[in-house]
């Protein structure tokens, strides 16, 4: 062991001690070093490049709803592993790991609360939970969110972030597309608005069901939104994809969404639009 190696571990550990973990982070888009506290105040949007970072469901709901909106809906609904699915790992173990890592029981979190005093139900996807994929539990939680809206006469706002249907529940997952889409008919019958907020990324079976069935489609800037993943499209057509393909700005241009709204303005904009379309 050289003299350098001998002293190296002490140096690194000393450096680590001086910087508490989680205080600083790096923007995945522009590599800028960011102070966590400031980032939080900026809604996890990079102050230097405006990149909208992926955020967890709890942060999303806390920043969107009024303070103290803590009533969770369908919080006990969890998956059952109906197929006893096993690849390199058991699906059950993957679920336990995801639950531990995210501190959530499933890939969508629903809360009943207020938005600037207005009663609303808001749902947010937890992308780190199995890629925000939709299986039985996500479908059921979404339907219960709709039912809650029906019982209290409130609009539904859903922030989607998902890779699509959850493979490990096979065709049962696919059927959640029908189930969630059907439920939205009931909301519509009662003239209750459904606002779909598409965040990075919203793909596959989630995009091809309730996420594209909003009265209003609002996307965050530069979010990836589409049916097939860009790599699959590229491999199929064997040509270069157009610039900005499947990004929010591309979808706005093609007529798939109503508007792109900066995360800092989502609360104001959605509240404003709801006051116009809902009866007081």
């Amino acid at each position: 062991m050289s003299w350098l190696e001998k002293i190296l571990p002490t140096i690194t550990s000393a450096v680590k001690k001086n910087i508490p973990e989680g205080l600083w982070s790096k923007c995945p888009s522009c590599d800028a070093t960011l102070y966590e506290e400031e980032l939080k105040n900026k809604f996890y949007v990079c102050p230097s490049c405006d990149h909208h970072m992926r955020i967890n469901a709890q942060t999303r709901l806390e920043m969107f709803l009024d303070e103290g909106s803590l009533v969770e809906v369908a919080e006990n609904v969890e998956t059952e592993d109906p197929l006893k699915f096993k690849d390199q790992k058991k699906y059950k173990d993957r679920i336990s790991a995801a639950q531990k890592a995210t501190n959530q029981k499933e890939a969508i979190v629903v809360r009943q609360g207020t938005l600037k005093g207005m009663n609303v139900v808001a749902a947010a996807f937890e992308f780190k939970f199995q890629g925000g994929s939709m299986g039985s539990a996500v479908g059921e939680r979404f339907v219960q969110a709709v039912n809650k809206c029906l019982s209290i006469g409130a609009p539904l706002i859903c922030f989607s972030a998902s890779g699509g249907a959850r493979m490990q529940e096979g065709l049962i997952s696919l059927m959640q597309m029908a189930k969630t889409s059907y439920a939205l008919n009931k909301l519509s019958d009662q003239q209750l608005p459904f606002i779909s907020v598409l965040t990075d990324p919203t793909m596959g079976g989630v995009s091809a069901s309730f996420a594209m069935l909003g009265d209003l489609h609002i996307a965050e800037p530069n979010a990836l939104i589409g049916f097939a993943g860009p790599r699959v499209v590229e491999q199929t057509v064997r040509e270069e994809l157009p610039e900005g393909f499947q990004r929010s700005e591309f979808l706005l241009e093609k007529g798939a969404i109503d508007m792109i709204v900066h995360r800092a303005e989502l609360r104001d904009k959605i509240h404003n639009l709801l006051t116009i379309i809902t009866k007081s």
């Binding site: 597309m177 059907y182 091809a208 069901s209 049916f227 097939a228 057509v237 994809l241 093609k254």
Partner: peptide
């Protein structure tokens, strides 16, 4: 469903979603 550029541009997701919504009722 076809994973092509044009299909995505013309709203493959929305087209599928709309059918689920309408067929269910």
């Amino acid at each position: 469903a076809y994973p092509g550029i044009g299909a995505e541009e013309r709203g493959q997701s929305e087209a599928i979603a709309r059918n689920l919504y309408e067929m269910s009722v």
